[in-house]
Amino acid sequence: MSLDILQMVLVTIVAAATPLMIAALGEVVVERAGVLNLGVEGMMVLGAATGFAVAVETGSTLVGAAAGAGAGLALSALFGLLTVVLSANQVASGLAMTILGLGLSGLVGASYVGLKRAPAPHLDLPGLTDLPGIGRLVFGQDGFVYFAFALAAGGWWFLWRTRTGLILRAIGDDHTATHALGLQVRTVRFRAVLFGGACAGLAGAYLSLSYTPFWAPAMTAGRGWIALALVVFASWRPLRVLAGALLFGGATVLQLNAQAAGIGLPGQLLSALPYLATILALVLLSLGRRQGGSLAPASLGRVFTPHR
């Protein structure tokens, strides 16, 4: 295989991995704070619809991306109000956000179905982007991709190298003890939820502004759920999310290529592969650490009410 074909394959893998990366990195922060947000799919699809609609109206991809992130953030504010402020059940509230997000995205995107716009601009550095073999891969991506990688590095730095990150992880591991220490459990959690929602919305905006680039109802097709699985798969560590997302992106690309090549397997089986791979990955992961115990934040999904 020539270097350029290899590069082309890698470019498509990175493109398929980017939305998973952005959404999962946001969710890592949320879950590290002890909140399980099952609304990622809904926030993602609302971000996709809002991002596309705003980008069409304003003509600016950047404004569209910001609007997508804003839509995810708005929906996650409702989620935070329910789960963090009112101590409602996190699983049920997350599902409510997914259903609500799917419905709202249909309303927002209704008049934009079938429209197409140019994909988000790619970086073009004279000399560097044309380098054979690696130019397009390293110097020719769009802003979302660079942002995703920066997010992984930033997330790692924040969680493991800052005081706030330490506090956030401590709250996720034991909300009662951290509350007794006088730390602001609910404030930190609410902010983490907002961050995760914005990331999910941005990941959706990437799909409609760069990946496809158009809006179709329910276009996220379960990517939000795969991002949630990815967080478990990556043991709640940002850099492993990066690796996991690339692995999943690779599986997606493989499936698309196999479908295009028509290798005799039914298309439905190939379409089911990412979901089956997700289950398999979770199974292998837990087989690998039978002795080690769970790596999940200890308070993940538990309801916290400060009693005085």
Binding site: L82, A92, L95, M97, I99, G103, L104
Partner: peptide
Amino acid sequence: LPLDLTRAFQGLLLALVLGADAL
């Protein structure tokens, strides 16, 4: 009126039920 309105209504209803439960 789009069908998605029904779905959004149902999602909102679930969210409000969970919120009211807390109250």
